[in-house]
Design a protein around this nucleic acid. Structure first.
Length: 580
RNA sequence: GGUUGGGUAGCUCAGCUGGUUAGAGCGCAUGACUCAUAAUCAUGAGGUCGGGAGUUCAAGUCUCCCUCCAACCA
């Protein structure tokens, strides 16, 4: 922290896998809350870097590319653009949206592997793999299918059975065949792979986890569970061509690993760092990433916050830290984690094939991003899984956004336009109603800030709404439309306060619904430097309620939020599924 | 199977280290108001806090048993 109180905050959200557009649950579980948090901390005046990227390696990408009859590179290029576009559409304010298949990640991953090996944490081991004679290659993970040894399901994938859900070792499949060619002409062969000896880091990781007392319960319990079971050594290479080549310290290909690459789980988290390097390079200051990640070069003062779904907790609390700490190099470790449960579709799973659930691109075809952002944050799956329902979505949007906020802005700006020539009234003195409003804000604004600092997103949204609602209550108390008949000055103070409230409501809405908030602030002519939520900006409440220059012209904005009608709900339920 | 979390008003959920008549939003009922997107504001109805036992002066809040749900398990 600097003298001015400005913090440096590094925010990352779990990397979405390259394969296909993500659904609302994926969005709500990491990218969206990370974005809201990043936006909030920027508004607080802090130096925020929000990094995300697509996770592009692994067999699913390779197989999907093959199915689409494209090269993997070409496929990933295309999918990355699609995901970037969806993210932009949802107003995700990444400072950089990178790619794990980039040059930076290759170098860093190779660097970590070499350092870990030098530190005695990586060794070559012989393991058995399914080899396809007709395809002339090994068949890792999903490249081989066969009958599940546990449940006799005939189309089990090499890494997991879709029927019984168990994780499998490809060599255990009964009647295995190649997913590439369908050939049953396969055999088990021995091959060498690199193993990361996580078991050696067990105590180090446990000490670190146990010292991280401020992690949320969900993250801690998952991490400790893994540690209790004992960290296992894991292969970090695979027999694939798509991925990061396995090299020696001098950069040459490692002998015996010509047809192998690092496996996705090893290189994906390293992309957090690599994406920061991509960001630095893109802005023409190639070394500027170091002050975010090297604790000997400034990152000691960085607060690093990771957002993820609960399925990713183990990788972030155990897997990646093994890589970081095992290197013995001064890399930044995570300080705070925020893990989310799932958003379910009416209590069940999202599914493309069963027409259940809305995906990011489809959502934006139906309604603007803010509608979804509000609902997903106000109903974030923090304590447990949260069910998306059209009815809940409709109620939330109509009540919170259209009736409470939208209508407030609309009523006060229209009244100002019709009775005060669309200018901020200059006359009138604050009275009882204004004093009530001030005291409300004096208790509510600090609570709002605290909820954001705690990353309690549901509560932040609820408090935001409560502040908006208090504005409507204020207008009822001030009732300028009544006072106008006998005392224009008395009406003027109500209108002036109301307009300033609308501005304040826009300011505090920015983290969650940035686009609509911008429309409000634009309509009221609030300059960019007055849109912050810094401690100084929020400290003088009476000043906040008289911030707009007197006589300043305002224009009622268009209707901010359209209500969702019953027939729309019926139509969308039909199209995307509902009540299961 | 193991682990974790959860079962609180019709619905979605808050309830910190146990302590006044258990809270919010939505929905519902009644009233008020008319500046506004049939909005807003006020009032009210509605819960033996999954079931049972225990600890305690006192338990939704701690302990044990049972039951139901969900998720996770490299």
């Amino acid at each position: 922290m600097t003298d001015t109180g400005q913090r440096r905050i590094l925010v990352t959200s779990a990397l979405p896998y390259i394969n296909g557009v993500k659904h609302l649950g994926n969005l709500a579980g990491s990218m969206l809350p990370a974005d809201v948090y990043a936006r909030f901390q920027r508004l607080r005046g802090h130096d925020v870097l929000y990094i995300c990227a697509t996770d592009e390696h692994g067999t699913p990408a390779e197989l999907a590319a093959q199915a689409a009859d494209m090269s993997v590179r070409q496929y990933c290029d295309e999918q990355h653009e699609i995901q970037k576009k969806a993210g932009d559409g949802f107003e995700l304010s990444y400072d950089h949206f990178g790619r794990s298949s980039g040059e930076e990640n290759a170098r860093l991953t190779q660097h970590f592997a070499n350092v870990l090996e030098a530190n005695g944490l990586i060794e070559e081991r012989v393991m058995e793999q399914v080899y396809s004679i007709d395809d002339g290659r090994f068949l890792p993970d999903r490249y081989v299918e066969g009958t599940c040894p546990h449940c006799d399901f005939e189309k089990a994938r090499g890494d997991q059975c879709d029927n019984c859900g168990r994780l499998l070792d490809p060599v255990d499949l009964i009647d295995p065949y190649s997913a590439v060619s369908g050939s049953k002409n396969v055999e088990i062969r021995e091959t060498r792979h690199l193993f990361l000896q996580q078991s050696k880091m067990q105590d180090t990781i446990r000490d670190w986890v146990e010292a991280s007392t401020d992690w949320p319960q969900l993250a801690r319990s998952i991490a400790l569970k893994w540690l209790d079971e004992g960290l296992r050594d894991r292969a970090i290479t695979r027999d694939l061509s798509w991925g990061i080549p396995v090299t020696n310290p001098d950069g040459s290909i490692r002998e015996g690993f010509e047809d192998k690459v690092f496996y996705v789980w090893f290189d994906a988290p390293i992309e957090y760092i690599a994406a920061t390097q991509e960001w630095a390079k893109a802005k023409g200051e190639p070394d500027s990433w170091r002050s975010w990640w090297r604790t000997d070069e400034g990152a000691d003062y960085v607060q690093y916050v990771q957002f993820m779904g609960k399925d990713n907790v183990a990788f972030h609390t155990v897997g990646f830290p093994v890589t970081i700490m095992g290197s013995n190099e001064p890399w930044k470790l995570v300080d705070q984690l925020k893990a989310f449960n799932w958003v379910t579709w009416y209590g069940g799973k999202f599914s493309t094939s069963n027409k259940r659930g809305v995906f990011m691109d489809q959502a934006l075809d139906l309604l603007p991003a803010d509608y979804w952002r509000w609902y997903l944050i106000a109903n974030a799956p923090e304590g447990s899984d949260a069910a998306f329902t059209w009815e809940g979505f409709q109620a939330s949007v109509n009540s919170d956004l259209a009736n409470v906020l939208g209508n407030f802005v609309n009523r006060i700006t229209k009244y100002c336009a019709s009775k005060f020539d669309g200018q901020v009234p200059a006359t009138g003195e604050p009275g009882e109603a204004e004093a009530w409003m001030v005291s409300e804000l004096e208790t509510r604004l600090p609570q709002l800030v605290q909820h954001y600092e705690n990353m309690d997103f549901r509560k932040a949204a609820a408090e935001t709404r409560a502040i908006w609602a208090a504005g409507n209550e204020y207008l009822t108390k001030a009732e300028p439309w009544v006072k106008y008949k006998s005392d224009v000055d008395a009406a003027a103070i109500g209108v002036r306060t109301g307009l300033n409230l609308a501005a304040l409501f826009g300011i505090i809405a920015q983290p969650i619904i940035p686009e609509a908030a911008g429309m409000v602030l634009d309509a009221l002519g609030v300059p960019a430097d007055r849109r912050t939520m810094t401690p100084a900006a929020l400290s003088d409440i009476p000043g906040l309620l008289d911030a707009l220059p007197h006589g300043h012209a305002i224009a009622p904005p268009d209707v901010l939020f359209r209500k969702i009608e019953d027939d729309q709900v019926a139509e969308w339920t039909e199209r995307f599924g509902g009540e299961s």
